[in-house]
Design a binder for these strands. Structure first.
Lengths: 342, 342
DNA sequence: ACCTCCAGGGACATATTATGTCCCACGTAG
DNA sequence: CTACGTGGGACATAATATGTCCCTGGAGGT
């Protein structure tokens, strides 16, 4: 029985949305009946006309009755609502999680894919697909997309498919070298994503851990400058979120830095910034590129991270911007909401 | 599980239509890939543009991949198709049809694939796939499989895939030459099926229409004798079912024989035997090999035939054995059951 | 090296449907 | 009686789906 829902989710996601919409109408109706079109519409957050179409449909099916006092459920309509409740819960439990995440983390949008990416690579792939799809939806032609490094963003690149609008886009790494392995480096991911998307890309080869003087020199290099301008003009940012300590180790941070991070309670990391539990920046990896300042001017940031273990990191990093979109998995979502005490 | 769909259908009356449409696209894609939009559209009987929208949707969901050679299923897409198959059968009542056929024709098992093989070649392919799968399920290592000729059995051979148990099997033609075209001859099909399955095969090259004396001589030939022994020891028989008159014509039967068949009311044919509506044998094509006697000792016979036009032939031939399995298509199945008055 | 066929994708007019926005007549409750 | 909220009608407009072309490009045969 679960399988049939799973199959439908893959094959008929659009119809399931419609189903949910109609179910919501019925459910609200059950609670508010008898009620008029306009009040119900505002309660559901739909426009009057849309609700009206739905109600006409439901009336046609004999699930609601309409008379002068307003709309009410018929008996079969009431039956249907109660019988469908578990079904809807199964189908849209994740959607509810998404709504909760939006509220708790102050996100514009959240996408939750089923599973736990700590336990199955497929889940990461699925997040990647969700990220790729989202990116395609929100990007406008000609916009610059800045991408950070990490395995999860790599998954997005991996699952990216070409599309017309993306052909006009330019992909750039969000920041210079941070000490990652090549295949997780922002440069590599930007180029991979651009290739898969059929778009353009510009890279920024900057060694990590340079002296201040060397940085200053590099910054004056014309081609570096050029890319940096692109980066700062990015309207969309795609980045992962890492566990602070794990990320620092992976990037071979000095023991001193590690100790400092621990002392200051670092839990999350994103594009080179380290955050504590309250979402305050406690360290900034030395590199060039996108800064938190720049984030204020982008149209959208897409953060991607999954796995129950990342819950704290995600919760710490996310509230940073009010226009964030978060793509995560079920395990992380539940863990975040549990920690939050909701 | 049915209840879920019942509930859903109350809110989404066209759920099944859409589901079926998308499933059909995927299924055809699986059988025809890689293929272009236009060809696929005509195979499906949709217009190009409609198919295009569907494919774009499926591509978006990651079920279909599109490149320069055409469209193909992705791995998840293929998974989805196979997982959906039983579901679709249930939804469209094919499972019920199967049960009815078993009862009416006294079959051990019936498999009904959707569609009408008179109208689409794909349906024959689908029957072929079903036949190949069934064969793999029921065969035991070392058993001899006798196959008859005809386009439908050829489809089974075409769709056969290798498997461990089949590597131990030997394929032989059920009967000697009956006057078929080479690519429909049992010999050719037996060898093809063996090759696809990775198994062994022995052939039996016997000209049709020999004098009695010549037959007797041939029968004493050691290598013929050897193959004949194998044939008689076959535990599994795969054969098609043909319309009697059509088959006789195709085999260039004499006008006299044709007239005789018509007079005696021949409707069905299988491995050289002609049957009337009551299932009685009214003529036996002269050749050597498997006889009806032998059928009593086999473990299983698999009859394969589809198309509404074959309904009468199938109904006439099938009741012959109580251990028959019939693989047919929806059109034939419905026609058979209609004729039977159920 | 060429040519041909079939591939996907772009473009666009048109048909169909969904949506936003009014307004109206009518019950009902106060 | 009045004021409010009810459903339903009407209609312009937006969004979407569809039918029909055409174009470019790659794969495979020659």
């Amino acid at each position: 029985m679960k399988t049939i829902l799973e199959l439908q989710r893959q094959l008929l996601p659009d119809l399931l949305d419609v189903m949910r919409k109609r179910y919501e109408v019925l459910r609200h109706l059950q609670l508010m009946q008898p009620i008029g079109r306009r009040s119900l519409a505002s309660a559901l957050g739909m426009t009057e006309r849309v609700l009206r179409s739905e109600v006409e449909f439901l009336k046609e099916r004999g699930l609601v009755r309409i008379d002068t006092v307003g709309m009410q459920l018929t008996h079969p309509g009431g039956d249907l609502v109660s019988k469908m409740e578990p079904l809807i819960k199964d189908l849209f439990g994740l959607t509810d999680l998404e709504a909760d995440l939006c509220r708790v983390l102050n996100l514009e949008k959240a996408v939750v894919v089923p599973g736990d990416s700590d336990r199955s690579d497929l889940v990461k792939k699925e997040m990647g697909r969700a990220g790729a799809r989202l990116l395609k939806q929100i990007v406008h032609p000609g916009q610059v997309v800045a991408v950070a490094g990490g395995t999860t963003v790599a998954a997005v690149a991996e699952m990216m498919t070409s599309s017309a609008v993306l052909k006009e886009s330019t992909f750039v790494p969000a920041r210079g070298g941070l000490g990652e392995a090549v295949e997780l480096e922002a440069n590599y991911i930007a180029s991979l994503m651009a290739q898969k998307a059929g778009g353009k890309y510009r890279l920024m080869h900057v060694p990590e851990q340079l002296s201040k003087e060397a940085y200053q020199m590099l910054l004056r290099e014309p081609h570096i400058q050029e890319v940096l301008d692109l980066v700062h003009s990015a309207r969309i940012v795609v980045h992962g979120i890492g566990d602070a300590i794990a990320m620092a180790s992976r990037r071979k941070a000095s023991p001193a830095l590690l100790r400092e991070l621990k002392e200051k309670g670092a839990v999350g990391e994103a594009f080179g910034y380290y955050f504590n539990q309250e979402g305050e920046i406690i360290h900034r990896g030395r590199s060039i590129g996108l800064s938190l300042e720049d984030l204020k001017h982008v149209d959208a940031t897409i953060a991607i991270a999954g796995g129950a273990g990342k819950a704290k990191a995600v919760a710490a990093v996310c509230p940073v911007s009010g226009r964030d979109t978060l793509i995560t998995d079920e395990a992380a979502a539940r863990a975040i909401l549990d920690n939050d005490g909701c």
